[in-house]
Design a protein around this nucleic acid. Sequence first.
DNA 1: CGAGAATAGTTTTTT
DNA 2: ACTATTCTCG
Length: 812
Amino acid sequence: MVSRRHTGHPRSAAEQILDGLNDNQREAVTAIDGPLLIIAGPGSGKTRVITHRIAYLVRVVGITPYGIAAVTFTNKAAREMRQRLVPLLGQAADRLTASTFHAFCANVLRREGEHIGLDRDFVIYDDTDQMALVKRALTELELDPKRFPPRSILSGISSAKSELLGVEGLAHRSGSYWDEIVVRAYERYEDLLRQCSAVDFDDLLLRTYRLFERVPDVAQKYQERYVHFMIDEFQDTNVAQYAIARQLARHHLNICVVGDPDQSIYTWRNADIRNILSFQDDYPKAKLIALEENYRSTQTILDAARSLIASNTQRVDKDLWTRNGEGVPIVIAEGYNEEDEAQFVIREIQSLTKNQESVVGRKKSGPSLGDIAVMYRVNAQSRALEEACLRYGVPYQVVGGMKFYQRQEVKDIIAYLRLIANPDDDVSLNRVINLPTRGIGQRTLDHLARTARGAGTSQFAAIKSLSDGSVLDRDAVISPFTARAKTALIGFGNLIKSIADEREDLDLLDIIDAVLERSGYQRWLLDQERGEERMENIHEFRASARDYLSLGRTEALSAFLESVSLVADVDSMEDRTDAITLITLHQAKGLEFPVVFMVGMEEGLLPHSRSMDDPTQLEEERRLCYVGVTRAKERLYLLRAFRRGFRGMSGGSEPGTPSRFLLDIPQELLAAPTQPKSPATGNQRSAVRRAESGEGVRSAMTESRREGIRRTKLPTPSRSDNRERSFGTIRSVRSSRAPNVPGQRPARAGSNQAAASPRLATGDKVMHKVFGEGIVMECKPSSGDFEVTIAFKDGAGVKRLLLGMAPIEKVS
DNA sequence: CGAGAATAGTTTTTT
DNA sequence: ACTATTCTCG
């Protein structure tokens, strides 16, 4: 490379690439000949090894980036890999294939699908679409969805596909009545997919596999191209993915897989840990390298992780170690309920980040908000956290949850677009044919489905033949459609056709606008509940289409639709320094944060109730917990709630039990919570301790129950004062601020508070520390404080905040 | 026959 | 709470 050196010899590329790697890492980077299995513990520099290995292949060995493929679990990981390669490879990094298995396969199929009779404009069906199709298949087979839940049927189909079993293959293997039903549904489901020119997620893999099997020329092309094939997160690949990798590596045999069996958390999605064993069978000469030095976490965190995972019986022990210091103890704490738990998290975050606010010259370097993540088992848990963030004015970023592309209004527009790209897409057609209402009801749709099926065409085609009268003329006498329905159907058909016909003349944005206008969707939506807000989502969606304008007009629509189908939530996660991250444990895989809070450490949540009975699944839950713990670099908090609401009935549930995983963590790694204002923490801890020291979980629970109630000085819960009660549990707040209960509701338990008036009124101008300037829109009493609704300038939007908590000042 | 209202059932994790 | 299906009315 062109850079001046003060030593006599310029450093060679090899030296530069290997610099700073430990022995095992070096070995992994330079073992470039033949199959390689890297077992990489958490924080062992896995990504570094992969990127440096690629750099080594290119700059030292001289392989063209074009000949290297690296498959990752998410698009985000792929993007990051490419970015990290830029300093090592420069522009050449662009030529590398780096994507998810699914995206890779979609690409191959888009280019080569014709060989196996795949329509050029095929759409990719997501989970919801698949369900619609399975339901239809069941109806057509006259199977009772109560006895045969579509969900279960679909998962049967999906796991068959993940193991490369077609209908025949599954039929062959089936051994029970249930299997028999799945086979029949599978068969019909496949017909429907074909009819719609659609493939589902599993098909992307299955069909790529078949393509390579059946069309050797195509397979050969890719086999020769990819001199090196690498797979990250190998423990989470399924049989189909591994099979494709083997196909691709058949020629050069340079296949490198990187994984950690202890981090396998996707077996429910048919990932198969046995792939790691198979790898060694399939490639007996494979070199095996273990990366065991951890660069990420403190000794304390690593110790906790180690003892936790050691409780799993189905595993090979690893020797994880770190040179990092001991660090600070792990904090285990209990909140009264989920709100209280969230409260604890937020207050702790505030105290952690307080030290470094706007002082000239660097002050104490505490974590910034971007260094902090709160992790949970189920998406629903984000809610309490979000609310707490809003109240306290802590900026946050939720990964996933209500996925953007899953929002109804967005999916509606996507359905229109898909239909324009591929009118045979029955699922999309059914979604929007009566949206806005066009007088096409269930009855008409049933007829339409039957007609289409009878004619062996898609529903759109059936509508078309209705309008030109071709097919149905013969049956005109018994035509099931009323004149009104017929007109409505033809009207819809023309709508789609007219836009599709202009596809060449319109760019992507025009098409979206045409849909919004001509379908009447926009006008209709704005009249709906929360219409404005939902329209905003559509605008955001429309804006995201901008990226595709540079592509040709024909290409843009399909490319856009494809990207929409294949993004993961974590893909759109930004590396923000100014907001905490709320994320599920699953999505957190592969990420790291200086500070990690894991909430919901309770039996039933982690481990989840669905997985508690089965030892295999239980071990997966423990691995999930392990993944969470090992995300933390410096500080780890394990929280739980004494009571947790269930589906809306907040707080009214039975007391919970601390997660058994807490018992796996040695006491000496634990500390009292760092929140001095909280008088209850010591007791909470003793509750946990007691549970650990063998007195049993039950007694710990009873203890903490007594604690919870005493601490909060509250009478027996009654439904009506849920909110007040939960406020009462905000321990430290209570001691530091006098709650203001407005006159309206004096009947609060122990009402020793005088009514006070809010210090803000509607119309006041305020300044918020984080969100900036805003106007008060509403101010109403809430849980002994006031909830103010403020519209902020500068795109911060409208926020609901708790007056007593939020860093707000009145401006004028 | 369709549209909105009432009611029943239910999701753990996601490419 | 949230949706998906069923019920009832125009």
